[in-house]
Nucleic acid binder design. Structure first.
Lengths: 356, 356
DNA sequence: CCACTTGCCGAAACCGGTTTCGTTACGAAT
DNA sequence: ATTCGTAACGAAACCGGTTTCGGCAAGTGG
């Protein structure tokens, strides 16, 4: 056990514990010589301050909280490891640690945040995947608890945030498909209540308008967060009289479902119908055809969020606390040059359905 | 903020804070009537004890630590979410929380454990993937810190542990392949320094001997933890004069690599050569052919480990602290009835290599 | 020489709980 | 009536740090 307290260190040094404390914390009223001596002996006898004792006095735990939603959480499963690594690596340079908890749904998450707060287990939170009207943020604001949002925060919010430029990815996807000759492009979004959904959709629309295309509202859908939901959305789109020749998806999992739907009507994704995803999940790189997607550097995201949060808690720098990061495209074979018109595509689908 | 201390509660009740403390902690020298009254008022005015203040006195943080290895950690990436959920769910009933950190390699992990210990951030650790000679366990033992092993602990170790019966999975795999008619079966293992490797290999050997087969040493390899390493191992196996008609892998990722190697010589996994994996990673279920594998319930694992660790820290029950859990088979199409003999297989591979 | 600042450090309060020890009141035993 | 035991609670120490306040000595200006 540690068992070497500041008292023992003070005795060893022939100083009072208050002097030792101030020396270690670099107070100005301690002579440089004493500071050096204290640090040296502290290191020598292996003194490590108790974080709880310090926290009791300072009111700080030196820990940040991360509550994961297990309802929608499966969607970010593959990135979790890198995300945690980013946070932890950033914190490891300091004395801070990361406290992780899981919860189900927004109410569950809010309850978990409250619990961690009331127990004084953490000083602040990383809030991933913020919603339009987010109970977690409401709670943290009401309690004046520091937090940092992974995602675009509310416009009138002063809390620091970090996000990836997913709108640029959607925009790039449209442009790429346009360059492949596609003009009839659908959009399949994710959780409508999530903030990211609005942003990605707007990115899609921006890409469309930049190319002089008008987004057909009947080709814009959402709530496709799983493969099954994506497949259903794909089946609906293919069954219309003017099916899209390309589909931009806000999530890889939905994109994989769309590829299945395409396969199920005897067509080939990437040839007959183009599909792009977003997230860069491993399954997409193993799928047939390999999914064109956009990868997020979640290590960087975690590290940045941790840095922003700690800075905002310690109030060291009030620098720009809103940061953005570009995504990296993963070119697969799920998209390509347009092969046939929407009418021809519709005919093919009809024909396939008849022969069955 | 919380700011309702035990003092305030005591004032509100007209009692001393020591009485309030003992009432809340169910001491025998407090009258039942007082206990009820204290609990009621505490709930009413929203009293939540500061975990740091309590920890300072009791020496307990009520937090457990989990240090993830980012070197080999990518292999357990998909399970992390469920694993954390299991731990967190188990802890949520109590006042305990989970502290997560990452590290690189054994030295890094040991250093991180030491840091968390010296800072008094956690009371105990969950140690996943223990090695034969594990620095983490040595450290924790030396410091008399409670820990629980995810994996089979050292035989002479009294520390609680939990593990899945991966040896049974390997054994099942052999029996399944035997029933498919395979007699020439290879084994491709993972990290040799890890404890699980020994266990899985022994499970494989047990399955072989139970069916009266002798394991050809030249067909037993290891150190295949990634897809690339698996592919290389597969290429080596296929190039021998008596290649195996079936391969049992200790890890899905290696199995996927073997499937690639089979594909690369113009053969079909699941038809010409059978392959089984272990872990049940999502990529395996998306691969062509779908991988036959064994799934681990990592939610259950996390919950059990957390329960064991807290029990061993609080020393409530000295019950059986060694638990085991069976795995569930995921039948895919990467294995099947034997199609040709080892000689015929070798001929096919030779022929393919000549034509190129 | 004295008052006053400045540098440096110690004493003690404090954070919010837990735990030890002591005290009071009351009924039972002697 | 005295002693004793016990139930129920209060006072105070304690955990290990941080922070406020005050004190002492040396230096400085008048």
């Amino acid at each position: 056990m540690s068992r070497v307290t500041i008292q023992a260190l003070a005795r060893e040094l022939g100083l009072s514990k208050s002097t030792v404390s101030r020396a270690l914390n670099d107070y100005p009223d301690i002579s440089p010589a004493t500071k050096r001596r204290v640090s040296a002996v502290a290191l020598h006898i292996g003194y490590h301050p108790s974080s709880q004792a310090r926290g009791l006095r300072t009111g700080r735990t030196q820990a940040i909280g991360l509550v994961l939603d297990m309802d929608t959480g499966n969607t970010h499963r593959p990135f979790l490891s890198n995300f945690l690594d980013g946070i932890s690596s950033q914190l490891s340079h300091t004395g801070w640690t990361l406290s992780v908890a899981t919860a189900s749904g927004m109410e569950g998450m809010v309850a978990t945040h409250r619990k961690l707060l009331l127990d004084h287990k953490v000083d602040g939170f990383i809030v991933p995947r913020n919603h339009r009207d987010d109970g977690r943020i409401a709670l943290l604001k009401a309690n004046q608890t520091p937090y940092v949002v992974y995602g675009r925060g509310p416009a009138n919010d002063t809390a620091p945030c970090f996000d990836v430029l997913s709108e640029d990815a959607m925009c790039q996807a449209v442009q790429r498909l346009f360059d492949f000759g596609h003009r009839h492009i659908a959009y399949v979004g994710g959780h409508v209540q999530a903030n990211y959904e609005r942003i990605r959709r707007e990115g899609f629309l921006k890409g469309m308008s930049e190319k002089g295309l008008v987004a057909d509202q009947s080709l814009c859908t959402h709530h496709a967060t799983t493969e099954d939901e994506g497949r259903l959305a794909g089946e609906r789109l293919l069954r219309t009289s003017k099916p899209p020749t390309a589909v931009v998806c806000a999530m890889d999992r939905a994109a994989l479902g769309i590829c299945q739907a395409i396969h199920n009507v005897g067509l080939k994704a990437g040839k007959d119908v183009s599909v792009t995803g977003y997230d860069g999940i491993p399954e997409g790189q193993y799928a047939q055809p390999r999914l064109t997607s956009f990868a997020v550097d979640n290590y960087f995201a975690g590290a940045t969020l941790a840095r922003l949060l700690v800075a905002s808690i310690e109030e060291t720098s009030i620098a720009h606390l809103h940061e953005l990061q570009a995504v990296r495209i993963l070119t697969g074979e799920s998209d390509g040059p347009v092969q046939m018109s929407s009418q021809e595509l519709a005919a093919q689908v009809r024909q396939f359905n008849h022969t069955i």
